Deep mutational scan, measured.
Amino acid sequence: NQASVVANQLIPINTALTLVMMRSEVVTPVGIPAEDIPRLVSMQVSRAVPLGTTLMPDMVKGYA
């Protein structure tokens, strides 16, 4: 089972991601792979992401 990136806190719209905002977790459906966490740092979210939400490619500007 592949771990995905999950929000560790509420991430407001247009916030630049930092390591403390993200954790890896095995979830369904699968989201952005956990190994991409270093690449996500400083990228902005395109919408508010609630705590515990799996990050999907369309939620991060410039990821897809």
Rank of each mutant, 00 (worst) to 15 (best):
I32E: 01
D36F: 11
T18P: 00
I13N: 13
V26L: 12
E25G: 11
A48H: 11
M56P: 02
R23L: 06
L10F: 09
M43W: 08
V20Q: 07
A64I: 12
V60L: 11
S42N: 08
V30Q: 07
M22A: 02
R23V: 10
P29S: 04
I13Y: 06
V6Q: 04
E35C: 14
M22F: 06
S46C: 05
A3F: 09
Y63P: 04
A34N: 06
L55H: 00
S4M: 02
R23D: 07
P33D: 08
E35Y: 06
P29F: 03
S24K: 06
A34R: 04
P57E: 13
P33G: 07
D58T: 12
M43I: 05
P38Y: 07
G52S: 08
T18C: 03
P12L: 09
A48M: 13
V5T: 11
V49I: 14
P57S: 09
G62E: 10
K61M: 13
P57A: 10
N14M: 06
M22Y: 01
I13D: 08
E25A: 15
V27R: 07
V49Q: 02
L17A: 00
P50E: 12
L19Y: 13
P57N: 06
L55F: 12
M22D: 02
V41S: 03
V41T: 07
Y63W: 13
S24M: 12
G52W: 05
V5S: 04
L51C: 04
G31A: 03
V26R: 03
D58N: 14
A34I: 09
G52K: 04
S42V: 03
D58R: 07
V5N: 01
A64H: 15
A7E: 00
T53F: 10
L17G: 02
P12W: 04
V30T: 09
L19A: 10
P29K: 04
G31V: 01
Q2L: 15
V41I: 14
Y63I: 05
S24W: 07
R23M: 07
I11V: 06
V27M: 08
P38E: 10
M56V: 07
Q9Y: 10
V26N: 10
V60Q: 01
L17Y: 00
N1A: 15
G31T: 02
S46P: 03
M56G: 04
I37A: 09
L19I: 13
V5P: 01
T28C: 15
V45L: 11
G31D: 01
P57V: 05
V30N: 11
Q9E: 11
A64W: 03
N8C: 05
Q44I: 10
I37N: 01
V5Q: 00
A48V: 13
N1E: 15
S42K: 08
A7V: 08
K61N: 11
D58L: 07
I11T: 02
T15H: 06
D36E: 13
P12E: 13
P29H: 07
N1C: 06
P57D: 09
V45C: 04
Q44M: 07
I32N: 00
V41F: 06
S24P: 11
G62W: 05
K61D: 12
P57R: 09
D58P: 08
V6G: 01
Q9P: 01
M21T: 03
R39F: 12
S46N: 13
T53E: 12
I37S: 05
L10H: 10
V41K: 04
G52D: 07
Q2V: 10
